[in-house]
Design a protein around this nucleic acid. Structure first.
Length: 287
DNA sequence: CCACAGGACGGCT
DNA sequence: AGCCGTCCTGTG
C-alpha cells in the first residue's frame, strides 16, 4: 500500500460526464467537486485543475499505469467525437453535450457482477448493494481516516451463500450472482480466456451463458469492461426511447422491435454504435 | 393501496 | 419465435 500522485494534460476528460453517464457504480462526488472511487486494490481521487487532471491514490498498483488503462487514455476521443458529430445533427448535439465522456476499462469480473445486479434496478440502489457487498467481502483501504472497500474477488464472493446475498439486498438477483460466481470460480467460464478471445459474437455468447446475463447486460459488459467493444449496443428503455424519438418515430414506442433498433444503430454508427449510444443516452437522460 | 425502475427467465401459445 | 407474468426492494 502506497500513496501516489499523478497528473496528465488531456482534452477529453469530464468528471461528471465520465462518472455519471451510467457506466460505473463505485465513484462518488466529494464536497470540493472531485470524485473518489475504488479501482482494483486502490482508492483513487480525481480532480480537475485548470487544464490538468490530478490523481491521488492509495493502493497496490502504479498509479500512472493504472489510470492510463482504466480511463482509456490511449484512445483518441477527439477523433471519435469528430466522426460521430459528422453523422447528423442529433449526434453533433449529443457529442457536444457529453464532450467529456470516456468509456472506462473496468475489471471484467466486477463489471459482470455489477451489471447482473443492475437488472430491473436503479442506480442509487445498485450502488448501495455493491457497497454493502464490498464492505462484507472485500478488503479495507483507509485513506484520510476514511474506510473504503475493494470489490470482492471471485474467491471472496464465493464465501457468500444465497441467503447472505439476499440479506445484502440483492433481491431476486441473489441466486443469479451466486450461480455466476460459482461458474466463474470453477472456470466453466474462464475470464482470462474470454479476455483474449477476439470474435465479438463468440465472446457475447459466452457471457450469455452466465445466469443473470441477458442481451442488455452482456452488451453493457462488452462496452464498459476491459473487453472494450465499442460496437456493443445495449438496448434498455432509455435507448429505445431515444432511438425511437430521433430515428424511428413510431407512435407506439413499445412495439418497436429490438432488431429494428439494432439495424438502424449499425447502419448509422457502425463500429462506434456503443459509444454513440452512450452520448445519446447521457444527453437525453440528463436533459 | 398501486405503479414503476437503465431486464432476465420460464412457461405459454 | 414472440408474448407475458413474475421476480426483490425502494420511491412516489
Amino acid at each position: 500500500m502506497k500513496e501516489q500522485k499523478y497528473e496528465v494534460e488531456i482534452t477529453t476528460f469530464g468528471l461528471k460526464d465520465i462518472f455519471e453517464c451510467g457506466q460505473c457504480f463505485r465513484w462518488n462526488q466529494e464536497a470540493n467537486g472531485s470524485y473518489t472511487g475504488i479501482v482494483k486494490n486502490n482508492v483513487i481521487n480525481v480532480k480537475e485543475k485548470e487544464n490538468k487532471i490530478l490523481f491521488h491514490s492509495k493502493g497496490e498498483d502504479n498509479l500512472d499505469e493504472l489510470v492510463t488503462d482504466y480511463f482509456d487514455l490511449g484512445r483518441d476521443y477527439e477523433k471519435i467525437k469528430q466522426t460521430l458529430a459528422k453523422i447528423d445533427d442529433h449526434m453533433r448535439q449529443s457529442v457536444s453535450y457529453g464532450s467529456g465522456i470516456r468509456l472506462l476499462n473496468q475489471d471484467l469480473w466486477e463489471t459482470i457482477i455489477s451489471f447482473i445486479i443492475s437488472a430491473n434496478n436503479n442506480i442509487p440502489r445498485i450502488k448501495g448493494i455493491i457497497e454493502r457487498m464490498a464492505k462484507a467481502y472485500g478488503k479495507e483501504i483507509v485513506l484520510k481516516k476514511k474506510s473504503y472497500y475493494t470489490f470482492p474477488t471471485t474467491q471472496e464472493l464465493a464465501k457468500a451463500s444465497v441467503e447472505d446475498l439476499r440479506k445484502l439486498g440483492l433481491g431476486f438477483r441473489d441466486s443469479r450472482v451466486y450461480e455466476t460466481t460459482k461458474m466463474i470460480k470453477n472456470k466453466v467460464v474462464d475470464l482470462e480466456k474470454l479476455q483474449k478471445e477476439k470474435d465479438f459474437v463468440s465472446v457475447r455468447n459466452t457471457l450469455l451463458t452466465l445466469p443473470g446475463v441477458g442481451p442488455k447486460v452482456a452488451d453493457c459488459i462488452l462496452l464498459f469492461s476491459s473487453l472494450k467493444r465499442l460496437e456493443a449496443f445495449p438496448i434498455d428503455v432509455w435507448v429505445r426511447r431515444v432511438m425511437n424519438e430521433l430515428y424511428i418515430k413510431n407512435p407506439q414506442e413499445n412495439k418497436v422491435k429490438k432488431a429494428e433498433i439494432e439495424k438502424i444503430a449499425y447502419e448509422k454508427f457502425g463500429s462506434l454504435a456503443g459509444i454513440a449510444q452512450q452520448y445519446l443516452f447521457y444527453w437525453k437522460r440528463e436533459a
